[in-house]
């Protein structure tokens, strides 16, 4: 009996150790310290072509994750200052089968995509996005100067004008084939410049709508090579929570 108690105790102890280590690791996991941004309801309307509950989400991309050069806004507390980041959070929440309108403010500079496919808008209503430029003075890669957009729906940007992309996919078994890709054209801020100040910094505001799929977790990431190393997908791109995240559809 004493032996059995001892063995049982050892099992419990082992389980406790495992659980503790697990908790330690998961602290840095999904449950982002930056919280989950819930979509704001706009009632029911025809934005998506038929009468659907309409919700909206607004977020931005910053050139500087930690905000150390910024007016004080920390988009990724403790983050690497030379890394770009989505903010204020990387985890969003929207209701199932609703019409979701997203406003993404792009403060970062950019360049060429690895694959021009991601310069095309895909999976949004009408396969278009609309971009409104503010204070941008940088030239487009085809000589357009400055690179500005006036809000007309467009179905693609120049692959060499990309700042980031927002590429959202369904997970297998939940929404197979669900795919939304939205290129965000670059803005005139150099990396590490003071960014995130809505009033003064150059930015591009991208607006698009899509119909959310069934309940489940959807993953999104950026397809613009904004990291270091092979194909620009090292460093920040390999670190969860900067240019990658989830959309919880509830």
């Amino acid at each position: 009996m004493r032996r059995l108690l001892g063995a049982g105790g050892a099992v419990l102890l082992g389980a406790a150790v495992i659980a503790l280590v697990g908790v330690g690791f998961s602290a840095q996991a999904y449950s982002s310290p930056r919280g989950v941004q819930k979509a704001t309801s706009l009632g029911t309307d025809m934005t998506c072509g038929k009468a659907l509950p309409h919700v909206t989400l607004s977020f931005a991309t910053y050139a500087d994750a930690s905000g150390t050069n910024d007016v004080g806004q920390q988009v990724h507390p403790g983050g690497n200052p030379s890394w770009p980041s989505y903010g204020p959070t990387n985890i969003f929440q929207a209701p199932a089968h609703a019409c979701v309108t997203m406003h993404i403010t792009q403060y970062d500079s950019g360049g060429s995509l690895n694959n021009p496919v991601f310069a095309k808008v895909q999976g949004t209503i009408g396969d278009t996005e609309s971009v409104v430029s503010s204070g941008n003075s940088v030239s487009g890669c085809d000589g357009t100067s400055p690179l500005t957009y006036d809000g007309t729906p467009i179905s693609a940007i120049q692959p060499c004008d990309a700042g980031h992309t927002f590429s959202l996919r369904g997970l297998p078994g939940i929404a197979p084939g669900f795919f939304v890709n939205v290129p965000l054209p670059l803005a005139g801020n150099a990396a590490g410049d003071n960014v995130g100040d809505l009033n003064s910094d150059a930015h591009q505001t991208v607006t698009f709508s899509f119909i959310a799929g069934p309940k489940g977790t959807y993953a999104w990431n950026c397809e613009y090579p904004c990291g270091l190393s092979v194909a620009g997908f090292g460093a920040v791109m390999g670190a969860y929570g900067y240019m990658s995240g989830y959309l919880h559809v509830v």
């Binding site: 495992i18 280590v21 697990g22 690791f25 998961s26 840095q28 996991a29 999904y30 449950s31 997970l171 078994g173 939940i174 489940g216 977790t217 390999g238 670190a239 969860y240 929570g241």
Partner: peptide, 18 residues
């Protein structure tokens, strides 16, 4: 920890990086 993550299809026990 691997097996705990894989208990459910879309587990949030660990981030993909971890």
């Amino acid at each position: 920890m691997i097996r705990t993550q894989l208990l459910t299809p879309n587990s949030s026990f660990l981030s993909p990086q971890t």
